[in-house]
């Protein structure tokens, strides 16, 4: 057993004792009842279980939760799909996903949303030139599997969210 503490969507959880072989996914879904983070494969393949980890150096990355122990997240700050909207106000990316009909069954959406959000935040810190945008989105989202949509509308939604504010995400405002 390991005693864990973590910050999830700005709220402190713990101290809680967890089995060393308890996955972070089960910790979220079974122990905390936070089922917005999905279980898809349990093998780190579909990434529908990804959450955002906010690192102490100010960077963030997504992390699958089904192949990583809850103990490994001890002391970390994470964000899940439940934490994006604030007071019912959707983020730009959430709106873009909805307006572009990005998802169908929606089961892989949490992973795509977290990955897209991390990409936006990364570009905000380190903008890209416009011509690299499609490949950056492609690389970011490629680990995520979706069975309904053919991925096109996810890519369109992330791109649209970035191009809505080119000055924020692109070098020279995207020109």
């Amino acid at each position: 057993m390991t005693t864990v503490n973590m910050m999830i969507n700005g709220q402190a959880y713990g101290p809680m004792d967890v089995r060393d072989d308890l996955t972070m996914n089960d910790f979220l879904r079974e122990c905390l009842g936070m089922t917005g983070t999905k279980f898809g494969c349990g093998a780190g393949q579909c990434l529908s279980c990804s959450v955002i980890v906010d690192n102490p150096d100010g960077t963030s990355h997504t992390n699958p939760t089904c192949i990583v122990s809850a103990a490994n997240f001890n002391g970390k700050k994470i964000r899940t799909i439940e934490g994006h909207a604030k007071n019912g106000e959707l983020t730009i990316l959430q709106k873009s996903f909805i307006e572009h009909f990005s998802f169908q069954c929606g089961y892989c959406t949490p992973g795509f949303l977290n990955e897209g959000q991390v990409l936006l935040e990364r570009l905000e810190k380190k903008p890209l030139v416009r011509e690299d945008l499609e490949s950056a989105i492609g690389e970011a989202l490629d680990g995520h599997l979706c069975r309904c949509t053919g991925y096109v509308k996810y890519h369109e939604a992330v791109k649209a969210a970035i191009l809505k504010e080119p000055k924020r995400y692109l070098k020279d405002g995207g020109r």
Binding site: G33, F39, I81, E82, L90, G106, T109
Partner: peptide, 29 residues
């Protein structure tokens, strides 16, 4: 529910991680 002008009726629920699928429910829900 505040919804964008276009989109699916299940759009907001699915983009915010609402409990929706059979696998999301436990007895306490």
């Amino acid at each position: 529910t505040k919804t964008p002008k276009t989109g699916r009726v299940d759009g907001v629920a699915k983009a915010t991680g609402a409990k929706l699928y059979a696998s999301d429910f436990r007895a306490s829900d």
